[in-house]
């Protein structure tokens, strides 16, 4: 995953609370391999009518090159499906701005280079009002945690760890490999303290990490 620190793109408003991950990608699309792309599945049941015809008025259909989404509280709540983030990212969304996000969704977003930027309810009200007559260009700066919309600059909230991860494009597995020894030492002590940490039917597999299942 490559990092980024600044993004300018078209912002559209999705003026709804509780846009859960089932809405972001309905379950029926989730058996598709990622390599086929998830962008078409994004908010599918809003973007298409019951016959599969696109609904032209829906914000993301009206502005298919939008890369910033402005929405309301509890965005990405519900299911842990990372496919919801894949759908946003594959569509071309880089930033979602909302007053609050589902915890798992926010964490999944950062793992895929998508910024979940938190702003106040009042700021979202104002921003959505500014986008009422159509998409506008918005600049998001990760370094100083700001969003510039027209003449207005608002600050967003983001965990410092996530800020660094997004800027540097860190990969957690790489980071964790640096702690191999600490992990092995912890495991040995942990299993000694609570032998049942290894399920009883599997206690025969070798103690130092990778092994085979005995049953």
């Amino acid at each position: 995953m490559s990092g980024w620190s600044n993004h300018t793109g078209l912002a559209v408003a999705l003026d709804r609370e509780n846009v859960d991950t089932d809405q972001l990608i309905p379950a029926r699309f989730m058996s598709t391999p990622r390599s086929e792309g998830y962008g078409d599945f994004l908010l599918y049941d809003f973007r298409n009518d019951a016959h599969g015809n696109p609904t032209p008025d829906f914000p993301l259909n009206a502005v298919p090159n939008a890369s910033i989404l402005m929405s309301r509280r509890n965005f990405g709540s519900g299911s842990s499906r990372e496919a919801a983030v894949y759908a946003l990212v594959d569509f071309g969304i880089r930033v979602v701005i909302a007053p609050s996000f589902g915890d798992i969704f926010a964490s999944n977003s950062v793992n895929n280079g998508l910024l979940p930027a938190r702003v106040s309810e009042a700021e979202v009200d104002a921003a959505i009002a500014m986008l009422a007559d159509g998409a506008k260009e918005v600049t998001v700066d990760l370094t100083d945690k700001t969003i510039r919309l027209g003449n207005t600059t608002i600050e967003f909230t983001l965990d410092d760890v996530w800020q660094q991860k997004l800027i540097n494009g860190w990969d957690d597995i790489d980071l964790t490999q640096n702690h191999k020894q600490a992990i092995a030492a912890f495991r040995a002590q942990h299993v000694q303290r609570m032998p049942w940490a290894i399920p009883v039917q599997q206690t025969n597999f070798r103690s130092a990490g990778r092994g085979t299942v005995s049953q």
């Binding site: 990372e82 964490s107 999944n108 895929n112 760890v161 597995i173 964790t176 490999q177 495991r187």
Partner: peptide
Amino acid sequence: GIGATEVAHVLATQTVWQK
């Protein structure tokens, strides 16, 4: 609950980063 990137991380390391 965790997302797919975290699942891959647990598979690869049996650990998870969490605040």
